[in-house]
Design a protein around this nucleic acid. Sequence first.
DNA 1: CTATTTTATAACCTTAAAGGTATAAAAAAC
DNA 2: GTTTTTTATACCTTTAAGGTTATAAAATAG
Lengths: 74, 74
Amino acid sequence: MKENLTDLSIYVKAKRKQNKLTQPELALKAGVGLRFVRDLEQGKKSMRMDKVNDVLRLFGGALGVVPLDREKLL
Amino acid sequence: MKENLTDLSIYVKAKRKQNKLTQPELALKAGVGLRFVRDLEQGKKSMRMDKVNDVLRLFGGALGVVPLDREKLL
DNA sequence: CTATTTTATAACCTTAAAGGTATAAAAAAC
DNA sequence: GTTTTTTATACCTTTAAGGTTATAAAATAG
């Protein structure tokens, strides 16, 4: 089950690095499991929104509706 | 288990109405269950991102990272 | 280079999301 | 007003998310 990196996964990893956190540290601060942080950074598509928001909140972000770019369509 | 409406739930319901669709019709077009559409419009927080994206795609949108407004913080 | 830290992958298990169906409530049409 | 359509809520089953743990791989420090 090989997942591709996504905008979201890249964003989270970059933000985590900016804040000098390891995956276990981020998981702890966000109140999610380590496994979750890893799936998130690996681009898993079927993550639960509430938990993703728990992570994004640490970086001042949240999930919202954005226009989908045409590249992603085909 | 009373969920509050959210930006997302309001957005989906509004877009569905704009497109003159019932919940069953939207569920069918998006390829998700009717229950899912209902939970989504009721503001359930723990929905799966992939399924939510299946719905948003019909309206030319997708889930992405947005800055969280300060109101939502406290 | 080797040692240490960090990250990736996988198995096992529990819990809850998702879907179906049914019924009640609400909204819209008449 | 009544009837019809749409939406909300509840119950149940199946399936997979994600927590835990272990181990392998990769990156970094020494």
